[in-house]
């Protein structure tokens, strides 16, 4: 086995797939992940975005050796994911973390530090430092069973940071946090990136992904349907224009023959969305038919739209979860 190479890409996955057997007789299968390719470069904040059951957490669990892939390969710093020593370079925050609740916050982070190879004064100093960073210094002597959900999330982040990881893997890091907590979590992630730490995080909270990620992959039904930098992905969207029309009914607008992205009748008005290339034709048509246009504005390019488009294209706009075969 090759030694751990900190210069190798922090995360590399090729053709990763995972099929779970479910049911009493294990005769049904759920395909949670299907042929996922992923490469995360050093120093990036890479986001995995997708609806519930898209395969985000499965991907992360495979990378953390909690779940074994059914196919494909995954490597951390050039090493297979089951190579325990490589995990010294990795800090992991699972979704809804569940630390030992009979320990105090400080005891738990100290235990995590021991497991990450720290000891003595260095460990003591580091534990104090990370508990301070997540603003848990004041509650470090309380047993975790007395913590609120947000406090548990913070102390779990502290255990991920205690080993000075070069790669942070965070599963839904802002879930359960109040707006202030979310903001602090985002600041902490950005601060880690500024120190050179690579971050992979998954979320279905689009504003978090938009605010933090350099690159992202959109997963739907266990497949990667989009991948790129946030800028690339957003600018690849077809620009559209929103128009509000009065004095015409919806069917009259539709009879103008201009292709519409969406059309909705409101109280005495019609709300239209049209591609930028067709907007002038629609404007002329509406005015020519005696309508009145009282608002024209370009629709904002957003990850949300990208996400919805990706869902629509994959035919899974309403369904969540992996593909179930009986």
């Amino acid at each position: 086995m090759q030694p751990v190479s900190p210069d190798a890409p922090p995360i590399q996955a090729q053709g990763l797939s995972k099929t779970y057997k479910v049911g009493f007789w294990l005769n049904r299968t759920v395909r949670a992940l299907q042929g996922l390719d992923l490469q995360v470069g050093a120093g990036q904040i890479y986001g995995l975005l997708g609806p519930n059951g898209a395969g985000k957490s499965t991907t992360i669990k495979i990378l953390m050796n909690l779940v074994r892939p059914s196919g494909g390969t995954a490597r951390l710093y050039g090493q297979p994911v089951d190579h325990a020593a490589t995990r010294r370079l990795v800090g992991f925050l699972p979704e809804n973390p569940s630390p030992y609740d009979y320990l105090t916050g400080r005891e738990f982070v100290t235990l995590a530090g021991h497991l990450s190879g720290l000891s003595g004064h260095d460990l003591d100093r580091r534990v104090t430092e990370v508990l301070g960073a997540v603003e848990m210094a004041g509650a470090e002597k309380l047993q975790i069973r007395r913590y609120s959900k947000g406090m548990v999330q913070r102390v779990a982040l502290a255990q991920a940071l205690v080993g000075r990881p070069k790669l942070l893997i965070l599963d839904e890091p802002t879930s359960g946090l109040d707006p202030l907590g979310r903001r602090q979590m985002r600041d902490l992630i950005l601060a880690e990136r500024d120190k050179g730490t690579t971050v992979l995080f998954c979320s279905h909270i689009i504003p978090d992904v938009e605010a933090l990620c350099d690159r992202l992959a959109v997963l739907v039904g266990g497949r990667r349907v989009r991948e790129g930098s946030v800028q690339e992905l957003v600018s690849a969207q077809v620009p559209t224009v929103e128009m509000v029309v009065e004095n015409l009914k919806l069917d009259q607008v539709q009879q103008l023959g201009v292709p519409l992205e969406s059309a909705q009748a409101l109280d005495g008005r019609v709300l239209l969305q049209v591609s930028d290339t067709n907007s002038q034709r629609l404007l002329g048509g509406v005015l020519g038919a005696g309508g009145r246009v009282n608002r024209v504005q370009p629709a904002r390019f957003s990850l949300e739209q990208l996400f919805m488009d990706a869902l629509k294209e994959s035919g899974r706009a309403t369904s969540v979860g992996g593909e179930i075969n009986t």
């Binding site: 050796n65 909690l66 490589t86 010294r88 992991f92 699972p94 973390p97 569940s98 497991l115």
Partner: peptide, 11 residues
């Protein structure tokens, strides 16, 4: 799920 935080360490 306490195990997630243990076996994800270098052990």
């Amino acid at each position: 799920r306490t195990i997630f935080l243990m076996v994800s360490k270098p052990v």
